[in-house]
Design a protein around this nucleic acid. Sequence first.
RNA 1: GGGCCAGUAGCUCAGUUGGUUAGAGCGUCCGCCUGAUAAGCGGGAGGUCUGUGGUUCAAAUCCACAUUGGCCCA
Length: 1080
Amino acid sequence: MFEPLSREYLAAPEALEEKVLENWQADDLFAATLQARKEADAFVFYEGPPTANGRPGIHHVLARTLKDSVCRYWTMQGRRVLRKAGWDTHGLPVELEVEKQLGISGKPDIEKHGIGPFNEACRNSVFTYKKEWEELSQRIGYQLDYENPYVTFDKNYVESVWFLLSRFAANDLLYRGHKVLPWCGRCGTGLSSHEVSQGYKDIDDPSVWVSFPLQNASGILADAALVAWTTTPWTLPSNMGACVHPNLEYAVISADNRHFVLLESKADSVFGEGTWEKLGTVQGAELTGLSYEPLFAFDGGEVVHEGTKRHVVSADTFVSDEDGTGIVHLAPYGADDFRIAQAEDITALLAVGNEGRFLCDVADVKAGTFFRDANKPLAQDLKDRGRLIKRSQCNHSYPHCWRCDTPLLYFPSPAWFLKTTAYKDAMVEENQRIRWAPSEIGEGRFGEWLENNIDWALSRDRYWGSPLPVWMCNADENHWDCLGSFEELADRVGGLPTDFDPHRPVVDTLHYPCTASDCTGTMHRVPQVIDCWFDSGAMPLAQYHWPFENQELVAEQFPADFIAEGLDQTRGWFYTLHAISVFLTRVDKKLWAENPDLPRLTPGSAYKSVLVNGLLLDTDGQKMSKRLGNIVNPAEAIGQHGADAIRWGLLAGGAAHLSRRYDDRALAEVRRRVFGTLTASYDFFALYARTEGWEPSADTISDRPPLDRWILSRTQATAEECAQAWEDLEPSHALRALEGLIVDEISNWYIRRSRRRFWAADDPVGQQSAFTTLHEVLSTVAQLIAPVAPFLADALWQRLGHAESVHLTRFPEHSVWRDPALESAMDPILRASSLGRSVRERVQIRVRQPLAKVLVHINAEAKLVASPRDYEATLREELNVKEVEWVEGTPDFLQVRAKANFKTLGRRAGKDMKELAAAIGTLDRETLFTLKGGGTTEVTVGDTTYALTGEDVLMETLSVEGLEAAGDGKVTLGLVTDITPELEREGLAREVLNRIQTQRKESGLEVSDRIRLKVFADAPLRQALQEHGKWIADEVLAPDGLDLPDALPAWAASTTDLPENVHHWDLPGDVGVKILVEKA
RNA sequence: GGGCCAGUAGCUCAGUUGGUUAGAGCGUCCGCCUGAUAAGCGGGAGGUCUGUGGUUCAAAUCCACAUUGGCCCA
């Protein structure tokens, strides 16, 4: 029992941690904690599924540590915390990775390769890094059930996703529409914003200003034409409207004998300075509803939105006054344009199709022309017809396809939407019930996002994803079904293939006759797959194949008490979880009405609290990226510092939501300062427990000294702070409190001031109390650090002699230890110690030199319940004084100062406060004492007289006349610095004692070894040693006493060439001494 | 362009509802202790709390604007 820990741990944290890990795995600790809490209340946690097609980085260690620590805390609070691992397996990143592996690129390549083999490759690639993730997670102590993870491509998972989607459809919240996407006409595919950002290039484009002559306008606008600007003349045939800003003021001008409307500030650049004349102004809002002459007349094209209007003016705030003319030409090739068309019911017609080519002849442009090649002829045509006002070239950066380098167009592509805007209010309301840490994200970032909610574009024109379970009739596109289970599909198609897997392409081969009456069409699945964010958002239900299985379990495990992810998930997982759950539990009333046996899920969001963590930057505050080469390899970091130090360092390094830096130096400091101090404290305890043969016993110690009760109280206070911090989702607060307890209170104060008691054979009761107390304190600390430093906690716990793992214990709660009065009484002692050392420093008297007396005065304001006098012995030893004199009242030799109490006076005094404070500062001693004695006084400032009571004035004591003194306002201390010959001799004796101990240590003696001791000294020292020899001998374990020979040997004159085991020392005051220390 | 966050000592960060002298660690200077010893401790020095304006008797804290950086979304 009580083997040392410090050296072993600090030298190689990794080795110790791996040993601990092996034990956990051998005992299946995670299963054991769950087993022990089988009947306990659940604390529900959802694991946000990582994408398993990339290596885990150090930032994942941060997120996983946060999750793990909170879950461990609640487990220690006795809750049953299931932690099902999960993997996000679908989506574009997987496809791109596989394309690279297969050496193909783009949709045509994939289809040539075959969707079947392609998807098979995707499925296999997903787990390339799974093992690495699992190993890292385990190595950092992230407790998670890896045996039964949820996997989003699993057929059961997909079936749950289908079910959820069918519920949206059943509530008429699934609809077909168009989504404007960056689009490559050659590849025939939409691109994600990430892909687009990889392909910007500078190219030249025409820049044209065209006119829209108003029709049926009156007044100043009669015969005027709007001026619009574009760099994409190819979109002009598809022009469907013009848009202005409702609140901008537009000028009506005359130029070239015609009238135009545009922003006045832009007229010079379009028409040239001095060539135009302002006729008047008009508000944007006044232009709305007017119609104008279309730019082109042609037949054909594709209608993508059937509306009641065309070529009209509308107003919207997206119009800016910076570029162009303040009047925007609307065509379906823009997201804002498309949105306005839908809102204003404007018909949207495409002249350019999804291959990037014209669908019909327009002016001189033939059908089939590539869109950019039409710019010139169209501009020429407009010029010929007088509709082109100005033309120039502009060079700008334009997105290109990263695969084939073709310029992209924005294209309204058919897509399926979830009508989330229909229940936006419910989402906003439920968001207010979520506890966000930090709260600003819930109100701000997430709240804003919900307020500006737009319908969820759900479909993706891709291959590797949950297939959209919509079957559509080939005769009438208005006939479509959204299927909600494999059984339903089997019923329709007359049975499913054996080992049915719902992925493409097999699912695409399943057809059935249209069920609409009088329709002879066939139902085919639509080609799209589902946005993989829907997969992950469905996780609370789909992870348990709900509602097909586990109905009761899901009812218990919904919603989550806690989730935690990075800030980047605000509009990702945090949103999709919320959107799906609010819909299912609040909007879908039919489901619950029609299925009374289905256990009800608590209405609301999918999570009650969420801890958001910020970015992890490198040491210089730079974002970690492969390009910069500043990625921290987690395995290397763990090898260097150990997982616990990294966990601690990452969590302590600032508020969780702030971006913080990964700093090797900070981690090294955690190891040294926190873990080093803790393990050294344990080693101190263990050393003397072994030496003295101490063992823990069940006996209670009835009468512990105040210092022991103090540290117990502080430990319990810290436990309470930690519990509060975990419940507030503020891990760094818990760690700060623990660091203070470990470093300042246990090590630097309690142990430092208690050391002697551990070997004090003359006080067995005190010794027993010291051992028991420190054992209890260290055990409690092991439990308190367990959520964050699980390895060290367990190693420490077990070395302290506890049988089972610390992780099976309950979070410490020893309310009987708590004694706030005792705690506050220590404060003046700590202050007095600090002041005393400060004075000694100033007067240059080292601590080893005993002094006769210290005077201590504690400000009456402190109003202490318990008396600091309980700690008098502690203070005496700390300051090395013979006597502490507690000064009562406020004797004349104390200098006092009055200060205004701003809190009580501020409101009363108002503007006079400043002067009043100054006046109070000058109050004399006598008045002060009157006040403090319960009397009152009056102070006049300006015209107002203020009646003051003792409460309004704070009295500080500053120094002591006639003594070397110091004060901090609350405690004043005066040191009697006269050194009598007697004290001087004791000081010298202490110097000798110190040298002997040093010699002991240098000779490699154990602390309990007995020694033989001989001291060779001259006259002045001899007297000191004769007086204190017995005491010295006792202290240094010299059973034969201190041998002080009268006659000095010949070598005593030299300081070199000394016999073995003899050292020469120079003591203060030019005193030399030679000491022999050898093992007895 | 919109939203959110941050800017405090040379560095990394605390700072509770506005209140008296803005704290800690690292680094630096000086010193000390040691029956925890390849550790440890104390005492100094070091701050226009990003800037400007405002509210207030009183602002690091509340408000506005600006500025720098970060993230998300356009």
